[in-house]
């Protein structure tokens, strides 16, 4: 499954959830869903905004984990 490492990147860049949510134009609740990996998908423009704000690459945020399988339940 795809793992979301947004929490780690935010910690490294010292950016709070509130600031990031405001800068990328989504609610804190949606950002929390994204961070916990409960989202079914991520839009390219959201990913672009996150990368621009955190000065990182999509690969820093998303990681493919072979060991765990994708679950339909969200």
């Amino acid at each position: 499954m795809i793992k979301v490492n947004l929490d780690r990147v935010m910690l490294e860049r010292k950016v709070s959830s509130k600031v990031l949510a405001e800068k990328i134009g989504i609610t804190q609740a949606n950002l929390s869903i994204l961070k916990t990996g409960k989202a079914r998908g991520i839009r390219f423009d959201t990913l672009e905004k996150i990368c621009r704000t955190l000065h990182c690459q999509p690969g820093d945020i998303l990681e493919y984990d072979e060991k765990t399988e994708y679950s339909e339940e969200v």
Binding site: N30, I33, A39, R40, G41, I42, R43, T46
Partner: peptide, 8 residues
């Protein structure tokens, strides 16, 4: 719609 709402 549900699917779209879960895409952030």
């Amino acid at each position: 719609q549900d699917d779209s709402n879960n895409v952030i």
